[in-house]
C-alpha cells in the first residue's frame, strides 16, 4: 500500500513535470488567465437597485436595464460552452503527446523494469493528465466566478457544476487519446480522432430530426448506434447549461453512456498496453 502510494504520486508528479516542460500547463494556464483578466478589467457593470444600469466592454458603454441574474447566467453559459468545446479541443491537443512520450524506446523499458504493474503506469499517467487539465479548468471557472460574484454580488453556485462536468468530458475523451496513443504511439492521430469525436457529437445529437429524415431502417439503426455508443459532449454541455440556467435536464443517459464509452476505451487501452512487447 505504501509502495502503491509512493509510485502513484511519482507517476502523477512526472506527468505534471512533463506538462510544465512542454509548456502545456502554462499554455492552458495563460489562456485561462487571459479570460479571467478580460472579466476583471474589460467588463464593467454598473448596478442600480439590483438591475444593470450600464454595461461597458472594451471602453464602449451600452445603457440598458437588464436583469443582472440573467446577464451573469448568460456569461456563465458562454464560458461553460467555451469550456465544453474549445476548452476540450485545447486540452486534447495539449495532452495528445503525453501518452506516446512514455512509450518511446529507451524510456518504456526502464519504466517497465520497475516493480510497478503496467496498469498502474498507464493509470498513473491518465490520472496525472486529468489533474493537469482539472487544475486549469478549476482555475478558470473559480476565477471567473469570483470576479463576476464580486462585481455583481451574485454568487451562483450552479456555475461551479461546469468544473466536474468538463473534467468528466475530458476524462472520457482522454480515454480515447490513451487508446490511440497505446495502439499507434502517435500524438497527432490520437488528437485527430478525439477531435473528430468532438465534432461529431453535436451532429449525432440531432437524433430525433435525423431519424425522421433518414429513409431506410438500417441507416436509422446506424445513426442510433453511433449516437448511443459515442461520447455525448453536446448533450453533456446541454445538461451543464440547463443546470446553470436552473432548468431541468432531460436525464442521465448522456452521462452513463459517455462514462461507459470512456470505461470501454480505457479498459481496451489497458489490455493492449498489458499485452504489448517493447
Amino acid at each position: 500500500m505504501r509502495y502503491t502510494l509512493t509510485t502513484t504520486i511519482a507517476l502523477i508528479r512526472d506527468t505534471f513535470r512533463e506538462a510544465f516542460a512542454r509548456k502545456i500547463f502554462w499554455g492552458l494556464f495563460g489562456l485561462s488567465t487571459l479570460l479571467i483578466l478580460f472579466f476583471l478589467f474589460l467588463l464593467k457593470i454598473d448596478l442600480v437597485e439590483g438591475a444593470i444600469a450600464t454595461v461597458s466592454l472594451f471602453g464602449r458603454t451600452a445603457n440598458r436595464t437588464t436583469d443582472v441574474d440573467r446577464l451573469v447566467r448568460g456569461i456563465y453559459g458562454g464560458i461553460a460552452t467555451f469550456l465544453c468545446y474549445w476548452g476540450m479541443i485545447l486540452a486534447v491537443f495539449a495532452s495528445g503527446g503525453l501518452i506516446p512520450s512514455i512509450l518511446e524506446p529507451g524510456r518504456i523499458e526502464l519504466l517497465l523494469s520497475k516493480p510497478v504493474s503496467r496498469t498502474h503506469i498507464l493509470l498513473g499517467r491518465y490520472v496525472g493528465n486529468i489533474l493537469v487539465v482539472s487544475c486549469n479548468i478549476s482555475f478558470l471557472v473559480l476565477g471567473v466566478w469570483t470576479i463576476l460574484g464580486a462585481k455583481t454580488g451574485i454568487w451562483s453556485k450552479t456555475f461551479l457544476i461546469s468544473i466536474p462536468v468538463t473534467i468528466f468530458i475530458f476524462a472520457v475523451l482522454l480515454a480515447v487519446v490513451v487508446l490511440i496513443g497505446v495502439l499507434f504511439e502517435s500524438a497527432a492521430l490520437s488528437t485527430m480522432v478525439t477531435i473528430v469525436l468532438l465534432i461529431m457529437s453535436p451532429i449525432l445529437a440531432q437524433t430525433s430530426m435525423m431519424l425522421r429524415l433518414l429513409s431506410s431502417e438500417w441507416s436509422r439503426q446506424i445513426w442510433r448506434t453511433l449516437y448511443y455508443a459515442l461520447p455525448k459532449v453536446y448533450d453533456l454541455g446541454k445538461i451543464m447549461l440547463d443546470a446553470i440556467q436552473d432548468e431541468t435536464f432531460a436525464g442521465y443517459m448522456p452521462i452513463w453512456t459517455s462514462a461507459l464509452f470512456g470505461v470501454v476505451m480505457l479498459s481496451t487501452a489497458l489490455a493492449v498496453f498489458a499485452r504489448r512487447d517493447f
Binding site: 513535470r17 516542460a21 529507451g106 524510456r107 498502474h120
Partner: peptide, 20 residues
Amino acid sequence: PEARRPIGYLPENHRFPTYF
C-alpha cells in the same frame, strides 16, 4: 512486478526525459 523490486536496470540506448 514484485520480482523486479530487487533489480537495478540500465538499458542500452536509454532515453531519460530531458526535462529532468
